[in-house]
Write a protein that binds this DNA or RNA. Sequence first.
DNA 1: CGCTAGTCGAGAAAGCTTCTCATTTACTTA
DNA 2: TAAGTAAATGAGAAGCTTTCTCGACTAGCG
Lengths: 146, 146
Amino acid sequence: MTESQIKQAGLKVTLPRMKILEILETGGEGEGARHLRAEDVYRILLTRGEVVGLATVYRVLTQFEAAGLVSRHNFEGGHAFFELERGTHHDHLVCIKCGRVVEFLDEAIEERQRAIAAEHGFTLEDHTLNILGLCPNCQAGQPRPS
Amino acid sequence: MTESQIKQAGLKVTLPRMKILEILETGGEGEGARHLRAEDVYRILLTRGEVVGLATVYRVLTQFEAAGLVSRHNFEGGHAFFELERGTHHDHLVCIKCGRVVEFLDEAIEERQRAIAAEHGFTLEDHTLNILGLCPNCQAGQPRPS
DNA sequence: CGCTAGTCGAGAAAGCTTCTCATTTACTTA
DNA sequence: TAAGTAAATGAGAAGCTTTCTCGACTAGCG
């Protein structure tokens, strides 16, 4: 079924694409690390002994984004995070110490944003809301190594 | 009074710093263009015949940010925008075509964010909310050249 | 099985930002 | 006011993320 997603996007089903999609699905190793930088994906591939160029990772992630399979987020600090698109919009709560990301959705905020765009005569194409703070672990002085 | 701000930050009052602060205050030329990239500041200085290195612009803006005189925003696209800090928090409505920026503040959204951070056990250190859309001019097919 | 367009990997290159370091400047002390 | 000192500057090199180039390779089709 992941194959069909790639095909629907008008892309050929190749090994690098399958591997990258799989890493985005599983987060590489443990749980929850589903917000990955391009270099994270590349490093995970290397760890597994897979030979995929960094340029290919960027290229494929960009293609996936264009195809709507993946969404790209610009948190603070110059590099983008990629996340598998699951059809449900959400915003992010980001720990400024360990980088942990929690997703949330608040309909009251969504509604206010629509109203604000309208008030100023803007169309609403997209939005990014990132709340930055310290997660419970990092407040306790025990940053978990992600 | 701008001098005193610089001094309070523990920085020496130098010509480059005064000039950069002045550009941030006036926006360089016309009205409203108060969200400038480092390179914009640099270019405006050049236009005025001032000799200030790009490295100095970056250095000074970073120092001003640390001192709370300036805030840095990462809208889409790899480069940061700097804005004079006027003590009042606000979020941004950004035109994805002409780059025009409108500031807004919505207390309902602010309140919901505090609640969301608390629900997840996060401290709330900061947040960035950028609404992306088309401004009235660009919807009309007449992008104003900023 | 062979063709062809699409894809890949590696390294070069681009764009933004930071670093290095010799020179210059602001502020302090006499 | 002159001199000394620590900080700041400017120019270019370097760093980082991301994109581009291009010859080699491969998926998908006939």
